[in-house]
Amino acid sequence: MALTFELDPSFTPALRDGITALWADVTNAGGAVGFVPPVTPEEIRPDLLKHLTAMERGTVRLLVGRDEDGAVAATAFLTLNEHRLMKHWLWLYTVMVHPRLQGQGCGRDLMAAAADAARSIEGIEAIRLTCRGGTGNDRFYAACGYKEVGRIPDAIRVAPGDDREDIVMLLPLGSASGPATP
């Protein structure tokens, strides 16, 4: 299934609810997107509100992927650096593909769309992201062209006695064609 991607869509109550439901579905399926299951949409809303506040300030851009029915099926938040020495790269946060679509190439499509979106922002030369160790997400991001640039041991506490590495990854954007797809 192909998704249709849009950068900076109009933020409506339906989009808000779609992102909230996606975030809960991804988390409850075991996705490492800031929560541990079980989680409800109501528990997600405060974190989404933080993203929305940053979007209003102009420091965060939203990339949404929709399925053929127009439902929210994927997201990524591109967060600009406000530090004057780091404005040449941005952070990619809350990268999600609905569990029913995982394993169908939609994640790679989302990552390619995120790289294209970052290239459209003047002065951006690279994307950084972090992922939770022990999930395999680092292998996925590496397959999308990202390079591991650091690991912070025991930085993420999933549960008492279950600490994970915080893996930092980087994608230099280079030319408009970007890195070769493996």
Rank of each mutant, 00 (worst) to 15 (best):
L173D: 05
V26L: 03
E6C: 11
R84D: 13
D116W: 03
F5C: 01
P37R: 12
A73D: 03
N81A: 08
P160I: 11
W91G: 05
P38A: 11
D109V: 09
R132D: 07
F5P: 00
R61M: 07
E122A: 14
S120I: 06
Y146Q: 05
D17V: 06
P153V: 09
D138A: 11
G161Q: 07
D163L: 15
A126H: 06
F5I: 01
T130W: 08
G134P: 04
F140I: 13
G178D: 03
S175N: 11
E6R: 13
V33C: 01
T20C: 13
L171G: 02
M111N: 04
R164S: 09
L3C: 11
F5W: 02
H83A: 14
R128K: 14
S120V: 07
A112W: 01
F77C: 06
V64F: 00
E148M: 10
D154W: 05
G174V: 05
P160R: 12
G174K: 08
N28Q: 08
M86H: 15
P38N: 09
A115C: 10
R45Q: 12
F140A: 08
R61V: 03
P46S: 03
P99Q: 03
W89Y: 15
G174A: 05
L48Y: 02
F77K: 02
N81P: 04
S10E: 15
G161H: 03
G30N: 04
E6K: 13
T59L: 06
L110K: 00
A73Y: 00
R84P: 14
L80C: 07
V158H: 08
H83M: 14
G30A: 02
W23M: 03
D8I: 01
L171A: 01
E122R: 10
A14S: 13
M96S: 00
A21C: 08
G178W: 04
W23R: 01
T79G: 06
M1N: 07
L80I: 11
R132V: 03
S10H: 14
F140S: 05
T94S: 14
D138N: 08
G70P: 04
S177A: 12
G178Y: 07
G58W: 07
P37T: 08
L62G: 03
T20E: 15
L3W: 02
K50C: 13
C106E: 07
P38Q: 11
G18V: 02
P160C: 11
R119D: 05
E43Q: 15
V168K: 13
T130E: 15
W23V: 06
L52G: 07
D166F: 07
G134V: 02
G34T: 05
I124T: 12
L110A: 00
E6H: 10
W89K: 10
I167Y: 06
Q102P: 10
L63N: 06
R108G: 15
V72I: 11
D154K: 12
R100W: 11
C131R: 00
G65S: 02
R57V: 04
K50G: 14
